[in-house]
Design a protein around this nucleic acid. Structure first.
Lengths: 197, 197
DNA sequence: ACCTGAACACCGTTCAAGT
DNA sequence: ACCTGAACACCGTTCAAGT
């Protein structure tokens, strides 16, 4: 069989990613399979393994795309003139909205399906770190005298917290999560500010 | 084939749960399969489907056991005479320690593998709600004038937050999570207390 | 009645063999 | 060189047939 190559390997890679993303968005990560992707792009499974090491590798690349998407959404939620506190509330609510509107993609980020075996590569860690940098920036704007280490830890606490609320909100369809997230951010900021430093 | 029944259905159910739990603890949820359980208890897969609807149902029962275990651990972390704030810090750190020491079981709680299809039954929701009640209790002890609704929302924010930090701590092996959790709880409490009510 | 064994429709992954 | 098709070792789930 085989056929004259109609696509470069790089084109196939992009086709695989797009098809996989569509499946995740429409049916969730559990429905993602190499065979489903192959069917979608008109190749056979073997071709997928030419451009990705395995499914875990592919999923990691899907996650990266989603992280990019989230970073973009958060950037757009920032209004330059607003106070740091307002910005942090805005970022949190934008994140929550993203999680609700892109449920399957967002949830994929926290699903360890097979990925557990994989060592998280540095470029992925760097990317999640960049999301935290966004929070750190606002915290340092809010409390300029905070050290890098303090701002870093506070960002970890605050954003980790926001993420946790989103998670339980979505898993246990809790209502009125916007207010809960708002309460966390505002209480935390008020209390953090007052910490002896 | 078939053989004279050596165990009641209820005994088999317990054997299945115990074997499944062992597999999850030792190898993680990804390694759990009906065949592996069957092999372990000396029956065939068919027997599992006599006592559980499907794997999702079985996993839900495993989750319940873990939630019970966590509730017990948290109860033991409480020292009656301590201040509410100290209790909340103690609860959070006990939870974090549990998550680290029982990684596979704890992570199972947040894995939606197949379970997504299932509607979360009320008894499961009630059980998670009871964990939150533990937090709510301390919050009301701390600020007796808070309404039920306020204490509930604060518990949601605070415990959701603690959980989120545990999650990112464990996924991205962040170090020094104890201090980050401490910072969240202490800052939140300080800020919550000062909220106009 | 209880349990088995085999089947069905799926997986991820590999690789000899075709073009 | 590129791609296929079939294979291998797994899944979850069902159910006729044995005891």
């Amino acid at each position: 069989m085989a056929r004259r190559s109609e696509h470069t390997q790089d084109e196939i890679k992009q086709m695989v990613l797009q098809a996989a993303e569509r499946i995740v968005i429409e049916q969730g990560l559990d429905s993602l399979s190499a065979r489903a992707i192959a069917l979608d792009i008109g190749y056979t499974v073997g071709s997928i393994y030419k451009v990705f090491d395995n499914m875990a590798d592919l999923i990691l690349h899907l996650k990266t795309r989603t992280l990019d998407d989230i970073a973009l959404t958060l950037q757009q939620a920032l209004v330059v003139d607003d106070s740091p506190q307002c910005c942090l509330v805005a970022l949190s609510k934008a994140y929550l909205t993203y999680a609700k509107h892109n449920f399957n993609r967002w949830q994929m980020l926290f699903n360890q399906r097979q990925t557990a075996a994989l060592v998280t590569p540095d470029w992925y860690k760097l990317q999640t770190a960049q999301l935290f940098k966004l929070i750190e920036g606002q915290l340092k704007r809010h409390t300029p005298m905070a050290s890098d280490e303090q701002a870093h830890r506070a960002a970890q606490a605050l954003w980790g917290g926001v993420n946790g609320i989103c998670y339980s909100a979505v898993l246990e369809d809790v209502s009125d999560t916007e207010r809960t997230v708002g309460l966390l951010v505002e209480s935390f900021m008020r209390g953090w500010m007052l910490e002896e430093r």
